[in-house]
Amino acid sequence: MTATATFSIWRGDLQGGKLVDYQTEIVQGMVVLDAVRRIQADQANDMAVRWNCKAGKCGSCATEINGKPRLMCMTRLSDLSTTQPIRVEPMRTFPHIRDLVTDVSWNFAKKRTVRKFNPRKPDAADGTWRMAQIDVDRVQEFRKCIECFLCQDVCHVLRNHQLFDEYIGPRLLVYDAALVMHPLDSDQRLADLRHAHGIGYCNITKCCTNVCPEEIKITDNAIIPLKERVVDLYFDPLTRLFGGAR
C-alpha cells in the first residue's frame, strides 16, 4: 500500500538556508533515509546527504527528525505522523556544511585529548594479560558506541552553551568510562576528567541516554560512575582517608 508524505528538508550551506517541502510516495517498511534518498533521486539530485550502512551501525546519517536527534536509517516512517510535514534538519550543534551534512571533526579532535589506553604490566612472561569475563562484560556496553554523535548534538552544554573548550561531551565521557573501568588500564584519569574534560558541567538531564541508538545507558553507567569517582578523589574526605579512590 502506498501513500504520499511531505518532508520538510533543510536545504542550504554556510551562507544560509531554508526548509524546502518535498512530496514523495512512501510504502510500508520505509525509514526516513529511504524517503530522503528517493527525494534525492527523483527531485533533488544536488541534495547533500551522508549515509553509509543503512543499518544503524555507522552513525553517518545522524540528523534531527521533527526536532529530535535520530539516525535516519533507524527511524521508521510508521512511527511518525504523516499528517504534518516531517522535518529533517542537520545536527544543530556542529558546523553546517551543506543540506543535511555537518562537520563533526571537533569530536575526533577532542578525542585525541583523552589519554591513550595504558595497560598494566603483562600478567604472563609471554607478554599477555589475563582478564575475567565479568570484567570484560562491564565495559562491553561502552564499546557498542557507533560515534554517531547524536548524544553530543543533544547535550545542552554543547548545543545551547557552546562550551566546546571546557566540556568534552557525553560520547567522550563514555570513551573515558571505557578506559577508567577497563580491567587492564593503569592510567590516572580523574584529574583530566574533572579539569580538562569538565565532567562537572554535566547536569544529568539524560538527553544523551534518550537519543542513543545503541541504547547505551550513558548517564547511569558512564557519566554518574565517573562523577562518583571524581567525588572519591576530590570531595569525599572519608573515601580519600580509606583509599577508595582510583
Binding site: 552553551h161 562550551l163 562537572g200 534518550n210
Partner: peptide, 16 residues
C-alpha cells in the same frame, strides 16, 4: 527539555 532552547546564555553546571 531535550533539544529545546534555554532562557539563559551563561552556564556553570555542577562545576562550581
Amino acid at each position: 527539555s531535550c533539544a529545546v532552547g534555554e532562557p539563559r546564555q551563561s552556564y556553570r553546571g555542577e562545576n562550581s
